[in-house]
Computed example of a mutant assay.
Amino acid sequence: MGQSITFHKADQLKAKPDAGQLGFGKYFTDYMFEMDYSAEEGWHDPRIVPYGPISLDPAATIFHYGQEVFEGLKAYRTEDGRILLFRPDKNMERMNQSCARLNIPEIDEKFVIKAIKKLVAVEKDWIPSQSGQSLYIRPFIIGTDPALGVHPSNTYKLLIILSPVGSYFGNSIHPVKIYVEDEFVRAVKGGVGYAKTSGNYAASLKAQTKSEELGFDQVLWLDGVEHKYIEEVGSMNIFFKIEDEVWTPALNGSILPGVTRNSVIGLLKHWGITVKEKKISVRKLFKKAEKQKLLEVFGTGTAAVISPVGFLKWEDKVIKVGNGEIGELSQKLYDTLTGIQTGKSEDQLGWTQEVKIEKEEVKEKAVDKAEEKAEKKPAVTE
């Protein structure tokens, strides 16, 4: 796609939120990216426009048949002022896998990464710099045909929005309590479990509410056929340290292929640690815990990176993992991944991509510094 991205300047910019009160997904930047698709023109009219509401017909496909996919990644500011993205190529690769399953026209992965970098460069001043903070990036595609009837849309809209977010854990990492769901089903092989689509998350809400009522933070899903094999947590993939090995459920068509999951497996193998992607029965896992062989449990995802699990509940059994705090391996993975993402650690595996600031923006920054220097210079009296 050789199209150029047009820029529509906003009449007025927003006040930046307090960096100490960001939370997750509460604030959005001044601009967003937008691009449209039609059968006649393909993906066309890429543009950066002021952030705001979009107009859709009440009969649009997205409202009635849920034809939608999305992604989530982050931009990080390094101590020396650079801006880094973490493995955006993997996110775009997965987005096309989701598009294929939802019958949405595929995107030009390199072009959308270019669009992300352009948008992030425009919004560089929105990237928070405190420890654990970042700029969350949400690309998504929706079907927009104004017609009822169960069939794929002929028109689509791709949008990218940005949100400055705080540290997932605050000042310290708090292990979560997980409830193993054995009544409701999230996905089955042959369905859309491996796609990042809104329906998967809608299907998880009832069980999530149930787990919170029981005093737990998140749901751990079992397979939809036999209800005995571990799959994933509502918003994370899951890992178990069993003695000197690390186990994680094998991708089977109903589990989301997480980018952080893939990165953790890569790091563990890089360190010489045995990783087994396999079917893991919840009964066998609890037996390992009873024998003191389950040493650590942690989830992986874009939001938290590494989320240690302190407690697991299944039926009438509750197990405490380790001492209920983050384990040594979990901490090492968290420190290494966040170090790579923020430029504090060497990126030996080539996972980061830098967002270059355009010359005009660099020139503008230099002028600002010159003006600041002139203001500080003492006045000369005659």
Rank of each mutant, 00 (worst) to 15 (best):
S204P: 01
E106W: 07
E232S: 00
L251Q: 02
L119Q: 10
F24A: 00
L162E: 02
E212S: 11
V246E: 02
M1N: 15
G258Y: 06
A19Q: 15
F86P: 04
I178D: 05
D108K: 01
I160S: 03
G2Q: 08
R77K: 15
H174Y: 12
R87H: 13
G324S: 10
L285N: 03
L119K: 08
S263I: 00
E34C: 02
A374T: 13
L312A: 06
G343F: 10
F33A: 02
G324Q: 09
P88F: 06
K376H: 07
D57A: 13
P175K: 02
A147F: 08
G199L: 10
Q208V: 06
D89T: 03
K241D: 08
V275D: 01
L205P: 08
K279R: 09
K110H: 12
E181N: 08
K288R: 13
I306Q: 06
H8C: 07
P17T: 05
M1E: 15
T248M: 00
D223I: 00
G234A: 12
E212P: 10
V309R: 09
D145E: 14
A100N: 14
Q341T: 03
S129H: 13
F240W: 01
D30N: 13
I319N: 13
K189M: 09
F33R: 08
G272Y: 08
E226R: 03
V297S: 09
T248I: 06
P50H: 09
E40W: 03
L222S: 02
T260I: 11
P128E: 07
K124T: 06
K114M: 00
V233L: 12
L256R: 06
S167W: 10
L222N: 10
P378Y: 04
K356D: 15
K189P: 07
V225H: 15
A304L: 04
I265G: 12
P378M: 04
E212T: 13
G190P: 01
